[in-house]
Design a protein around this nucleic acid. Sequence first.
DNA 1: AATACTGTAACCTGCTACGTTTCGAGTGTC
DNA 2: GACACTCGAAACGTAGCAGGTTACAGTATT
Lengths: 95, 95
Amino acid sequence: MRMHHPPHPGEIIREFCVEALHLTTTDAAEALGVTRKTLSELLNGRSGVSPAMALRLSRVFGRTPEGWLRLQQQYDLWNIEQSVDMSRLRRIKAA
Amino acid sequence: MRMHHPPHPGEIIREFCVEALHLTTTDAAEALGVTRKTLSELLNGRSGVSPAMALRLSRVFGRTPEGWLRLQQQYDLWNIEQSVDMSRLRRIKAA
DNA sequence: AATACTGTAACCTGCTACGTTTCGAGTGTC
DNA sequence: GACACTCGAAACGTAGCAGGTTACAGTATT
């Protein structure tokens, strides 16, 4: 089974990147090279971690880009599993 | 360092899911519950592995959804690294 | 009161996943 | 040759998302 209701990546980013370093949203956005709005939407779950954003995060706050993207991936998968019915799909056999 | 020019996931999918099972694109698309066009674009690198597609692939061809998504992730990251200049971004210090 | 920080709405651009439709290139059968 | 059929792929439209600019309202802090 999969994780139960993974948080959106913005929560983790806020906790470990912004609050832990006592940064403001404005400061962090500037360091990342994006606008305040872009970071605000990410922190509040209204947008996700794009590949470009994962690279920015890794350069400014460390960790690997893959690690940042994985947060988004797990969040996306959990949500898709809840909302899309794939039960009719069957494993295929070679012809 | 990162991988050198990762192939787009469509190549892997074509090789291990379609050709290896002697399926046609039409057959595979039907099994995945998408149109021929959608799968064709994926196989030819004109679209990527979305979270929903990763789930479809895992149900029909096995492996984990995370594994399928990882292929896309590595491809995306490599391409972003080539095209976007992040050299001005500096690691941030706590205030 | 003035300043700083935040969230967010409106509007725009660019990109992408996906569906429907249609075209063109095989590949058979008569 | 002429026909139908199948397959892959292109053109076109729809929907949605990331991100920017600008502007506004709320809340602290000084």
